[in-house]
Computed example of a mutant assay.
Amino acid sequence: MAHRSQKSKSPKKTVLSTNSSLPGTEQFVTFWGVRGTIPIPDQNMLKYGGNTSCIEVLNISPTKHNSIIFDAGTGIIKCCENALLRGDRVFHLFFSHMHYDHIIGLTKFIPFFRKDCKIHIYGQAKISKSLKEIIQHFFISPFFPVEFYQLPSLNNIFFHELNGLNHIDIEGIRIDIQPLNHPQEALAYRIWSEDKKTSIVYATDHEHGSNLDIELEKFIKGTDIFIYDSTFSENNYKNHIGWGHSTAKEGATLAKSADVKSYIIFHHDPSSTDIFLEEKILCEAKKIFEQSFLATEYQTINVSELHTLLTTK
Rank of each mutant, 00 (worst) to 15 (best):
P145Y: 12
K126P: 00
N44P: 00
N163W: 06
K13R: 13
S20R: 13
I135K: 06
N51A: 11
I127M: 13
K129R: 14
S257I: 06
D88F: 12
E290G: 00
S210E: 04
A285T: 13
I301Y: 05
R114V: 09
I55R: 01
K13V: 12
V29W: 02
L16Q: 09
V303D: 01
D259F: 10
I134H: 10
F276H: 14
V57W: 02
M45R: 11
S10L: 11
D88K: 11
F276D: 10
A258Q: 06
W32M: 03
K313R: 11
W32R: 01
S257C: 07
A203H: 03
E290S: 12
F226M: 08
D101H: 13
K287E: 15
T30S: 12
Y100S: 13
C283R: 12
E297N: 07
F70L: 13
T311Q: 11
F31K: 01
A83M: 15
P111K: 07
T74N: 11
R4D: 13
P142G: 03
K238T: 14
F144H: 15
V303E: 08
G24F: 11
S304M: 04
D71P: 09
R190D: 02
E234A: 12
A125M: 01
R190Y: 01
D71H: 05
H245I: 03
T198H: 08
H240S: 09
A255Y: 04
H245S: 13
E147W: 00
D195S: 06
S128A: 11
T18D: 10
F28H: 12
N59Y: 00
K129W: 06
D259N: 15
D169H: 11
T52P: 06
Q136L: 00
K196G: 04
G33M: 02
Y122S: 04
N163K: 09
F109I: 12
E278F: 05
G49Y: 05
F112Q: 06
E81R: 15
I55P: 00
I77N: 08
T107M: 11
M1Q: 11
L93P: 06
P39R: 07
Y263H: 14
Q178S: 05
A295Q: 01
Y202R: 03
T198Y: 02
G172E: 08
T107P: 01
L154V: 14
I104Q: 14
G50F: 02
H208M: 10
K132E: 15
F112A: 07
Y298M: 07
G209W: 01
E279I: 04
N181M: 04
D259W: 01
N156H: 14
L277N: 02
G242H: 08
G75H: 05
G164Y: 12
K256D: 06
T25W: 05
D229P: 06
A72K: 00
K261R: 12
F219H: 02
D213Q: 07
L212N: 03
N236R: 13
G33V: 08
F148S: 08
K196A: 12
N19V: 12
S257Q: 14
G50V: 02
D229R: 01
S53E: 07
N66A: 04
Q178H: 09
K249T: 10
R114F: 10
N239H: 10
C54S: 04
A258P: 01
D259K: 14
L180T: 11
F293H: 15
H3I: 09
S233N: 03
C54T: 06
D176Y: 05
F138Y: 15
F113R: 10
L212S: 02
H307R: 14
S141L: 14
E133D: 14
E161I: 07
